[in-house]
């Protein structure tokens, strides 16, 4: 079968990219290998681990469960865009550092994307709400406790 490919234009972290992609190219692979935005990690490619979570028009989604071609004309945000332009940490990045919310760091980008979006919606979450929001991201190192603490601390800081 001939290769079925398509011209797409997408915006990632505010930068517009125009590329030709094969239909079957997963968004996760496209971001990592075509655009070189390797901060988005791939853990399972069946939508369970959450490592590949990115924001699609501001909402967290699994980038392994979307084809790149589907992202045409959408806004994608990845971990590379979480910190400020001058490298200043987002409050959640700072809190993850302060609370030792990462060990190997492999699941961390997905957690940052999921939980920064969560904090945009909920600035005063309970611990239970944080755990529920986090439950779609698997971490094998931390036991989650320090991540939960980091999210609570970031929420507090973002409330001002």
């Amino acid at each position: 079968m001939d290769i079925d490919d398509h011209e797409i234009t997408i915006s990632v972290n505010g930068v517009r990219y125009q590329r030709r992609v094969e239909s079957r190219m997963l968004l996760s692979d496209f971001l990592r290998h075509d655009l070189g935005l390797a901060g988005t990690h791939v853990g399972c490619e069946h939508g369970v681990c959450g490592a590949c979570t990115v924001l699609l028009d501001g909402q967290p989604v699994r980038s392994c469960l979307m084809f790149a071609v589907q992202a045409e004309k959408h806004e994608i945000s990845t971990v590379e865009g979480v910190a400020g332009g001058d490298g200043e940490y987002h409050p959640l990045q700072q809190a993850m550092h302060d609370h030792h919310g990462l060990q190997c760091g492999y699941c961390t980008p997905g957690i940052l994307m999921t939980m920064t979006a969560f904090l945009e919606e909920n600035r005063s979450p309970s611990e239970e709400e944080v755990r529920e929001a986090l439950s779609g991201n698997l971490c094998r190192c931390t036991g989650y406790q320090n991540i939960v603490d980091a999210v609570m601390a970031a929420a507090k800081r973002m409330r001002g």
């Binding site: 935005l37 791939v42 979480v82 550092h97 760091g105 980008p109």
Partner: peptide, 19 residues
């Protein structure tokens, strides 16, 4: 003491094998 390795991991700049 907070970790030296965190910044690269938190900003998506650490080199893992598939990178």
């Amino acid at each position: 003491i907070k970790r030296n390795e965190d910044r690269r991991l938190l900003t998506g700049q650490a080199l893992f094998i598939d990178d």
